[in-house]
Design a protein around this nucleic acid. Structure first.
Length: 249
DNA sequence: ATGGGCACCTGGCTGC
DNA sequence: TGCAGCCAGGTGCCCA
């Protein structure tokens, strides 16, 4: 049976008034994930949470005093607490008593990138008749999920595709290379614990080591690890893009 | 339907 | 040392 303490309701969306009452006294049945949303399933419904840019979850003992930006706790009978910390408050916390797949935040999300549903054929199909830059497209969660700003640049580098290319100009062969590159980048990053740029740590406090594997992200001005040309940087849709104009076409 | 831009925040770093 | 300005790992929403 869990108890819930909310200290700060003002996340990306305000935490609903009925949130605590909805889950108090229930038992956690399963933990799942859809795109970057974490799902905590109870008998009567599901908690849907997102870490945003700066959110983190930690299991701590109940007597540990909360720090600044520790916005909510889910307290377990065992004396352990799942505590959410998020300085920028871009994360979110929702409750649904319906099928979470039908929740507005999850309904309409693209297939899981590591599943068989996400493949060359799918990616080629969704790029048809779209003029948006390919980098922008692979960060659109209705078409591709799991690819944030770092992995977008990295996947395009591996697929040798220039980030500003119009999606509709991507060939079948390139779509295949890109779908593979996305799977590869995500799999490798997950295996070594993600990407720590500044302060990201996992649940045990360990940093992710994918930063050492980055080919272009945050390497502007440095030599391309493949061809030794200078890695370039520009701002695309308010986000930093990094690429090698020799390797990527 | 698609695409572009903005919004939500704090903190860390840089340069004056 | 202080402070202003800029940038950041995400993504939904509004408007053209």
């Amino acid at each position: 049976m869990v108890d819930v303490i909310v200290r700060e309701r003002r996340l990306r969306w305000p935490i609903a008034r009925h949130f605590e009452a909805a889950i108090r006294g229930q038992t956690v049945r399963a933990i799942d994930r859809r795109a970057k949303y974490i799902l905590i399933r109870f008998d009567a419904g599901t908690v849907i949470l997102h870490l945003g840019m700066s959110g983190s979850l930690r299991m701590i003992k109940v007597e540990t005093p909360p720090k600044t930006h520790d916005h909510w706790d889910i307290r377990l009978d065992s004396g352990w607490v799942l505590r959410y910390h998020d300085p920028r408050r871009f994360g979110s916390l929702h409750w649904t008593d319906a099928d979470p797949a039908l929740h507005p935040l999850l309904d309409g999300l693209a297939p899981e990138p590591l599943s068989d549903d996400f493949d060359a054929l799918y990616l080629h199909r969704v790029t048809r008749r779209r003029s948006v830059a390919i980098k922008h497209l692979i960060m659109n969660s209705r078409l591709v999920v799991g690819v944030g700003n770092i992995y977008a640049s990295e996947a395009l580098f591996r697929a040798r595709i220039a980030p500003r290319r119009a999606a509709r100009r991507i060939t079948r062969i390139e779509a295949a290379a890109l779908a593979s590159a996305i799977k590869e980048v995500l799999n490798e990053a997950i295996t070594i614990g993600g990407t720590t740029l500044r302060d990201y740590v996992d649940a045990d406090g360990a940093p992710g080591y994918f930063r050492q594997k980055l080919f272009v992200y945050e390497r502007a001005g440095a030599a391309c690890r493949v061809c030794r040309s200078v890695v370039k940087h520009f701002v695309q849709g308010q986000r930093s893009t990094y690429w090698c104009s020799t390797c990527q076409r």
